[in-house]
Write a protein that binds this DNA or RNA. Structure first.
Lengths: 148, 148
DNA sequence: ATGTATAATGGTCAGAGAAAGTCAAACGTT
DNA sequence: AACGTTTGACTTTCTCTGACCATTATACAT
């Protein structure tokens, strides 16, 4: 498993117990034996505002990074996502969304997998490459509205 | 025996034990002492959707190629369908298939609905109209081999 | 108290690294 | 000659690193 995945897992695990995660960047970096900026990478690719996470931090002595999550109803959460996806969506971001949907029981593995497949580059192979992320976004938005 | 055949055999052998094969392209290439793109050749000529295989992959650090296979009990039926759908697929024909899938318990209503939405004209609004049935066919084929 | 240096954090971004994909040319077989 | 196979140069995507920057707290001098 990739380092980023391991770090993500660790943070998610804390989230499972607490409603907010406060961490020290340099400590985490030491813990996972990587450079501090790796932590930023993990956060910026996985704990994204599109999923309702927001991140605060403070530098200097006693600095920290705090990740919290807006507790939205399912409907609001989906609306929020609809709002934030503009008109392009990559395959890897779809994966991130789906993982989240599963975590919050909005989808089962099977359904998530169907969506993943439908939105894969494989499926969309005949759509012009420049248009693909746009079509993906369209399909995804349609699907979101129909989740229930 | 040709190299491609040997590599195919190797992958098939893993399939005999597992239901899905996850491999590292460069590792395999080293293992069989060939260039990495040879692996792509083997996959693209032998593990094709028409034969009931589905391939996903990821680039970058920790990348992989994952090949999965459709459920054997449904192979004949699905193979038939794959065969019949050649290049184009309309929304209404999708509906007919989906109804069948539900009748044969290959899908529940919820999943069928997801597929219906994903393949609707609304989702595919930005795909050129002349191309739409073709893209729909592509997506549907990918989905079919992932029913399980 | 007030201002200033220093230490302790975290942020950013470009580039290196680690895979996999593509495509056309060369090579072999039939 | 036609077809299938093998190869390698070039591309794309994702991850990881490090040098340099910005901010905050604290200690120290006045």
């Amino acid at each position: 498993m990739k380092l980023s995945d391991i770090i993500e897992q660790y943070i998610q695990q804390v989230f499972a117990e607490e409603n907010t995660v406060e961490l020290k960047r340099s400590e985490l970096a030491t813990m996972f034996n990587c450079v501090p900026s790796q932590i930023n990478y993990v956060i910026s690719t996985r704990f994204i505002p599109e999923l309702g996470f927001y991140v605060e931090s403070r530098r200097g002595g006693g600095g920290y990074i705090k990740i919290s999550r807006i507790d939205l109803s399912k409907t609001d959460y989906l609306y929020d996502i609809l709002d934030k996806i503009d008109d392009k969506l990559s395959q890897s971001v779809v994966d991130i969304y789906l993982k989240d949907f599963i975590r919050y029981n909005m989808l089962d593995e099977k359904a998530a997998n169907l969506i993943r497949v439908a939105l894969s580059d494989k499926s969309l192979i005949r759509v012009d490459k420049q248009k693909r992320d746009r079509v993906r976004a369209d399909i995804f938005k349609c699907l979101i509205v129909n989740l229930d």
